[in-house]
């Protein structure tokens, strides 16, 4: 079927502008972008409905009617967009209320991991290997290490068995 180039251009521009705005930090801007995207998508549905025609009302006109299904779908999409945009605005307001601006912030926990990566560190829950390993004869072991050796035994009931000698 033939395609209406004007509509295609409108779709392209609306989606492009919407995307550009959505990539911003300010939540209201993102929402503005989202509305633009929504308009672009609705036009896509119009393109999908084929060539223009009369309003799909039976008996209103003798011309060929436009395809009603994409219209119904677009209508549903419009209303859903309305609902979520309203919610998004509430979110923007709340962000402003909490932080004094409406910019979307970066995640703090991720920032911690990134800092660890920059410091060539391991995760916080990783135990670095320490010296509390079973020691072997032959090394000149000071008495302190001797105690470390005994760290390995299971006898937790008598913590004061440090130096029986």
């Amino acid at each position: 079927m033939s395609v209406d180039l004007a509509l295609i251009i409108a779709i392209g521009v609306l989606v492009a502008c919407g995307t550009t705005l959505v990539l911003e930090r300010s939540l209201t801007r993102i929402l503005v972008g989202f509305v633009l995207l929504g308009n672009g998508v609705n036009l896509f549905f119009i393109v999908a409905s084929g060539p223009p025609g009369a309003a799909p009302i039976v008996g209103a006109s003798d011309e060929r009617m436009a395809d009603p299904l994409p219209q119904a779908m677009a209508l549903t999409a419009i209303v859903i967009t309305l609902g979520v945009t309203a919610f998004g605005l509430a979110l923007a307001y709340r962000t402003w209320q909490l932080e004094g601006h409406d910019d979307v912030q970066d995640d703090v926990e991720d920032a911690l991991v990134i800092r660890r990566a920059e410091r060539d560190d391991t995760s916080a829950s990783f135990d670095e290997v320490d010296e509390s390993l079973p020691e072997e004869e032959g090394a000149d072991l000071p008495a302190v290490d001797d105690e470390v050796t005994r760290e390995n035994d299971e006898d937790h009931e008598s913590p004061d068995d440090g130096d029986p000698r």
Partner: peptide
Amino acid sequence: VLFLISIAAVYA
């Protein structure tokens, strides 16, 4: 939005 675009494309 991507889902809607896909659906419109499929219907088209």
